[in-house]
Design a protein around this nucleic acid. Structure first.
Lengths: 153, 153
DNA sequence: CGCTATTAAGTTGTGCGCAATATAGTTGTG
DNA sequence: CACAACTATATTGCGCACAACTTAATAGCG
């Protein structure tokens, strides 16, 4: 149907930002399935590994969650799967038995080298320049910040 | 850890496009939960309704899937929930008994008016201008197109 | 016409996301 | 020290996504 002929033209799928955003995330995730085949990692698991590789020390579930904006309901089972895969350890913090500290195993550390080419491969699939990617990244980061501070109506 | 001190600086979470994209989608989806409260719709269900409101005639599961890039494994249970909610009907196409035609009920048609303010409310939460949103939409659409045609490693 | 290939939808199983809740450990206050 | 408030993680339940597979219907070809 022609958009201009609609009672509520603002509801047209093609005019909205939300749908391309949603579709882009799923397309990127799908691309990661291919790129991460061989590691056994899913995309969210890969993100957790990125955070752990960045850190000099073990991280609690909460700090992982703050970095990735994920809660324990998502992270706990995901971390158990990484533990089963032999990539991380989960140990109670002796100084505070409520906390679980997540640390990399040797195998987990070693995997960093294995995926070091992934960002570049993904960049190639996206068909945009590095500068465009960085600009897009900044716009999306700003969008997230705004949405986080706009909890009211 | 300082990015410049890493063995694989390209793996830094903050330097990559994928994470802001992933976080933005989840933030937008979360915002929709608030905006759609009262309708009983989830965000994917809202997208299906957008496509149906756009269409003059009933749509098959496959055509809905092509429009939203979703397969029957996602759509079939979602459509059953919309049917249970009284918003759509699902009828076998008499001309081709393999196809299921999805059409809006009166209640489903009526809901369009109820959500007509949602796009504008979401726009307000995102803190970007209409033009910025449209530019972002175009960039993301292009990104999806590239990823779709880049299936090979 | 009869048979094979194709197509459409549905089913199954896995892994997120996230709200709501439960449980255990810690902190702060009197 | 007792105990209430708080914090960290885990659990439960629901709804996607999607790969892989199944079932049923149609199309096409000899």
């Amino acid at each position: 149907m022609n958009v201009s002929g609609r009672t509520y033209p603002q509801l047209a799928l093609d005019l909205q930002l939300c749908f391309p955003l949603y579709a882009a995330t799923r397309a990127v995730t799908k691309r990661y399935v291919t790129l991460l085949k061989g590691t056994g990692l899913t995309y969210p698991q890969y993100l957790v590994m990125l955070v752990l590789w960045e850190s000099d020390e073990p991280l609690s579930v909460t700090s992982l969650g703050q970095r990735l904006r994920l809660d324990s309901g998502t992270l706990t089972p995901l971390l158990k799967r990484l533990e089963t895969a032999g990539l991380v350890r989960r140990d109670r913090d002796p100084g505070d038995e409520r906390r679980v500290l997540v640390s990399l195993t040797e195998e987990g550390v070693a995997m960093e080298e294995q995926v070091s080419g992934v960002p570049q491969q993904l960049g190639a699939s996206m068909g945009i320049t590095r500068d465009e990617a960085l600009a897009l990244r900044d716009q999306l980061t700003e969008l997230v910040d705004h949405l986080d501070t706009a909890e009211s109506p």
